[in-house]
């Protein structure tokens, strides 16, 4: 139970970061954190039904559920890709407006249009 609560807290911290932080780099951190929280949740919960790695061997007990692991492999890569793109956009925004502050960027974009 404790680990689930911690994972939930991790998720909420990340979400609060996305919503509340003004620095867009910190927002991207928040996105990474909520992604990791869900990945952790899948892996931790999926490993409760067995006690060895899902690699079939001659004498092996019950393995953990391999499906969440395979799914999360995909989800992690997608998360990394989205983060990379977000950082690239942040870089361009910084070059254009000289700031990482979302409100400041909003203000300047508004003025331009």
């Amino acid at each position: 139970m404790l680990e689930r609560i911690l994972i939930l807290l991790l998720f909420l911290i990340g979400f609060a970061g996305i919503v509340g932080m003004r620095n867009i780099i910190k927002k991207i951190f928040g996105l990474t954190i909520i992604n990791s929280a869900v990945v952790l949740l899948f892996i931790v919960e999926g490993s409760r039904i067995g006690n060895s790695a899902p690699i079939i061997d001659a004498e092996i007990g019950l393995v953990v559920d391999p499906v969440p692991q395979a799914l999360m492999l995909t989800a992690i890569v997608i998360g990394v890709c989205v983060t990379a793109l977000a950082l690239a956009l942040a870089f361009r925004l910084y070059k254009a407006y000289g700031s990482f502050d979302i409100d400041e960027i909003h203000r300047q974009v508004h003025r331009e249009s």
Partner: peptide
């Protein structure tokens, strides 16, 4: 356009975060 980078960034953050919620629902 510089504005397009902000639009793309907002779109990315909102939709990527909502996809994490999608994963939670899938869980």
């Amino acid at each position: 356009k510089n504005g397009a980078f902000l639009a793309s960034f907002s779109y990315l953050m909102v939709s990527a975060s909502s996809m994490v919620f999608f994963l939670a629902g899938l869980f």
